[in-house]
Structure formats: C-alpha cells, structure tokens
Design a protein around this nucleic acid. Structure first.
Lengths: 211, 211
DNA sequence: ATATAATGACTGACCAGTCAGTAAGTATTG
DNA sequence: CAATACTTACTGACTGGTCAGTCATTATAT
C-alpha cells in the first residue's frame, strides 16, 4: 500500500509528453551515452515520473531508437531545405555554407557522439543512417561537384571521391570545433575562419578558376 | 566457506599477466565499449580468473586507462618511426603513406571507437591524447607542409590549416573504410584506391607542381 | 614451512522495468 | 450544478537481475 502525501501540481498533457520525453532523452543520452544514461535522469529532466516514460516508450532501447530517428529526420529535413533553398542556384559553395551552419548547431554536437559510440550496437539503425543520411548527402554533393565540372568551374575530378573527401573535412571539423578547449591549434579560430580555410582548400583542390 | 573442487592446471606467470590482461581488455573494450565490457569477459578471454585482474589493476577504470595509454603509446611510437624513417627525405607524401598504413591497421579501428565514445568521460586522458597525439601529429604535418612550401613544391597555403584538413581527411577515411559494408559508394574501393584519391585531392589543393 | 599467485563464490550497489495506487478530468444522474 | 461513478494520465516504491569489487581459501614455488 503505497503512501501518497504530497501532490505537487500534477499536470496532464498526453499530447505533449512524447516530444517532451524525447527532448530530455536527447540531452541525457548525448551527455552520458546510452549505457550511462539513467531513465530516472531522463524523467527528472523532463519533470515527470519514471513510470510515465514507460507509458509512451516500451523500453530504453525503443526510446533511444526514437531519439535517433527523430534527430536524423530533423537532419534530413534541414538537408532538404538546403537543397531546395538554392533551386538551381549557387551550387556547391552555398550548400556547404548551409551544411556548415548545421554542423555548428547544437543538434550535430549532441548527436555525433552516440552516432559513433552506440550506433554499432543497433545494426538496423546504422544501416538506416548510412542509407538515408550518409549516402544521400554524398549523392547530393557529388551531383553538385559534377555540375560544377560541367560548368567548367572545376577541373575534371572524380565527383564521388571529391564529395566524400569534402564531407570528411566538414564532418571532422564539426567534431574538432567542439573540442577546441583541448586543441590549441584551433582554439583561437572562429567557426567562420574554419569555414573559410576549408573552402579555400576545397576550391584549390577542385581547381576553381575564380575565387 | 567456499567450495573448491576442480583445479584445472593453474599457472603462475606474474611477469606475463599485465600484458596478457591488457591485450584481452583492448579486445573486449573495443568490441563492447567501456560500459558494456564485463570484467568477467576480459578474464575469460585472458584465460584467467576475475580476481587475478584485481591483483594487477585496482579498478575497471584504471584498467581502461592503462589500455588507452598502452595503445596511445604504441601509436606515438609508430609516428616516431614514421618521422625518423624519412630523415630529411620524401616529406609529406611519404609520411602520409606511413600514416595511412597505420590508420588501416587493426589498432586504429579498435581504438577509435572508444576514443570518441568514452574519452569524454576521462578529461585527463582526453587532454593527454589531445596534447600528445592530435597536437603532435598536427605539428609534424604542418612542418612538412611548411617545408614543401619553402621548397616551392606547394603554393603558399596556411600550413596549420592545411595540416588540420589533411589529417581530417585521413582520419575520417579511416573511419569510413571500417564501415564499407554499409556504404555502397566506398564498398568497391580498396584501401590503396582511397589513398590515391586522397593524395590526388591534397596535391591539387596544395598546388603541387608535379605529380 | 613460508611466501606468493591465483581462484571463484559472494556481497552490495545500482537500475531497467513493473504495478498497485492516486489524482485529474469527463460523463451521468438527480 | 452538485454529487456520483467512470475513465485516463500519472506516480514512485518495489523487484529481480546484473556486475564491479572482495576475500577466504587453495595451488604453486622456493
């Protein structure tokens, strides 16, 4: 027979709960990793009781999956926006600008860690991510490089290789920038400076004829 | 009063134990990550009993630290070898060849995962790694680029930025190559082909005058 | 004999997941 | 427009399993 004395303003909001839980879960998973994240922590951060989480997500794994899918979908939507935002317009460089802006957002920082750390334990999610994010991004960039070549903006490089290398540079720098505090050779550089340096390098590699 | 019936060929080898334990621990940590690795698993893989591990390493964390330091030291030694192997010789490209060979080794693959996943939980180790590996590698590459510029092999780029970007490409490709099975756009490419593509890109970016 | 190496059953802490119980909201009735 | 029963959202103490770390005991070596 459980005691029940204090009733600290309990709220009912079944529509809002899932999003609320996912947000708290993203925070805690990103901070601690899947294994070290406690369901109690997530509940506390969401301002609800532990049991409530289990009304909406059957297990911790399912919650984790939902978080990944949620953030990945968000990432894809941004990519779509970036693609359609420049209809047949500015090409590779404007895409990279938008891409870098995304990489510098808190979402990227929070997602990246358990992308590397925990995704290998979820082969189906890893596959989903590879297909829907990595590969899609690669195809998009490769197409932009290809178009640049056709327009004689770039020399005749292998678009697929160039795309892969360019993405590598940007993603890795997205990781590095979050570790500035430990890395004296980056500490003083702003995100904009990093972007400019990367763009210079890429332009030169692609043999861009004009600045 | 514990029972003790079977004595399956107990061996005494106090000198060999630490290395034996570290090797088993590296395997298990790499496979499962810090949190999911069981001391019992490590003991079993090493062919000894759990208690024996605690004769040599006071806690699981200490064991993990020892594994990191061990592998990082190994990595540094290879870098030293690579540096001294080309006295004032072939410069950047020969270093990158050796570096890529290291990146393609099993050690890199096993170490990288918990470098990203678990190191954030060990600020002192992260600092150590940043100083002794990342920064040292960066300085070395930057110096090689600098020398290339002085020798008029490369155009007048920012050596620090170029070094950082080159390292980014190589490290990221070290990660990608281990995920080939999920990535159709790399699956068919050999490590050598990846290296050639990266080198082409870098050469072009540095404005290398001859192939 | 004595010292040292090794063992593995055990303990204590931790935590995912459960469920009996409580509060908030809604429908029904007089 | 109560008082009532009924439904649904939520709670948090509890359970059962897992595992890091301990230590009394046993094996080997000298």
């Amino acid at each position: 027979m459980p005691r029940a004395q204090k009733a600290p303003a309990r709220r009912r909001a079944p529509e809002a709960r899932p999003a609320q839980i996912l947000e708290a879960a993203l925070d805690v998973f990103a901070e601690k990793g899947l294994a070290d994240a406690r369901i109690d922590d997530i509940a506390e951060r969401a301002g609800i009781a532990k049991g409530t989480i289990y009304l909406y997500f059957p297990t911790k794994d399912d919650l984790f999956r939902a978080v990944i899918r949620g953030t990945v979908v968000a990432e894809l939507e941004r990519a779509e926006v970036a693609r359609t935002a420049s209809p047949h317009g500015l090409g590779l460089e404007s895409f990279l600008t938008a891409y870098w802006r995304f990489i510098c957002s808190p979402t990227f920082e929070r997602v990246h860690r358990f992308l590397v750390a925990d995704l290998p334990n979820f082969p189906d999610l890893a596959r989903f991510y590879a297909d829907e994010v990595t590969l899609r991004g690669h195809r998009l960039v490769a197409a932009l490089v290809q178009r640049g070549i056709e327009q004689r903006l770039y020399r005749d490089v292998d678009p697929s290789a160039a795309a892969r290398i360019i993405m590598s540079i940007f993603v890795m720098h997205g990781v590095l920038r979050t570790k500035r505090h430990n890395l004296p050779h980056i500490a003083a550089l702003s995100d904009e400076q990093l972007f400019d340096q990367m763009l210079d390098f890429v332009r030169a590699a692609l043999g861009a004829s004009h600045s």
